[in-house]
């Protein structure tokens, strides 16, 4: 049984329609890559899942109908979002960022700091003074501290140095191997996605156009839908 199911989901920003029918599913412990060129609806799909935008169609998570829930109630079911652009709470310290929205469960500060040792070194430093990569690690750590059943990463490695990107991808691989956490990941790096993703969903103009095993992504598909 799938953990998250989207059936022909539509979404609007005021009068402008952004999603025209996205369908996808994610099972327990599965890592799914949501891919597409800029403006194809990846972030809006994430916002629809997290109930941050008005949607139509079917949206269920852990057997619950998400379309009837406000954002905070949907999150409490186990959605952990790492939003695009890091978005840490800049004036709070690393430790405070981790504690601010924490919920009880497997993930606590010790485990997050073990996953990202840099955060332990910067524990008492305010988030606003961290490097981009450290802020990204903090954003992932903060999402893990809510003890989600599904971790959603929106462009988690965008604009980061190769070494930092490698650290983040290693952490995601560790998460997959050791915790069996379901992950929905948006990223442009096909080679790095290939190391963690089980399946891929390609979006084109606000609708899914291809779903399948990540290994089955052929160069022609990549060129057509990702422009690479």
């Amino acid at each position: 049984m799938s953990l998250l199911t989207l059936e022909s989901v539509t979404a609007h920003y005021g009068p402008a329609q952004a999603l025209f029918g996205v369908s996808l599913s994610i099972g327990e412990g599965e890592v799914v890559a949501l891919m597409g060129r800029n403006g194809m609806g990846k972030t809006t799909t994430v916002r629809a899942i997290c109930r941050m935008v008005e949607t139509g169609g079917g949206l269920t998570f852990a057997g619950q109908d998400l379309t009837r829930l406000p954002s905070h109630k949907a999150a409490r079911l186990g959605l952990g979002l790492v939003p695009e652009g890091r978005r840490c709470f800049a004036p709070l310290t690393v430790a405070e960022n981790l504690s601010a929205t924490a919920r009880p469960g497997h993930w606590d500060r010790t485990r997050v700091e073990a996953l990202f040792p840099r955060l332990a070194e910067r524990r008492d430093q305010t988030a606003g003074t961290l490097s981009g990569g450290e802020q990204q690690m903090l954003a992932i750590g903060r999402a893990l501290m809510t003890n989600p059943r599904l971790l959603i990463l929106d462009e988690a490695t965008e604009g980061l140095a190769p070494l930092i990107r490698a650290e983040i991808w290693t952490a995601l691989a560790e998460l997959k191997a050791q915790t069996g956490l379901a992950i929905l990941v948006i990223d442009k790096s096909i080679s790095e996605l290939g190391n963690v993703a089980d399946r891929a969903v390609l979006l084109e103009r606000g609708a899914d156009v291809w779903t399948g095993a990540f290994d089955a992504l052929e160069p022609a598909l990549i060129e057509r839908y990702l422009g690479v």
Binding site: M52, A75, P83, R87, F89, P91, N97, T146
Partner: peptide, 13 residues
């Protein structure tokens, strides 16, 4: 955190 971003706090439940 809520004074800095309502949406992010809501997204955390």
């Amino acid at each position: 955190a809520a004074r800095q971003s309502e949406a992010r706090v809501e997204a955390a439940g």
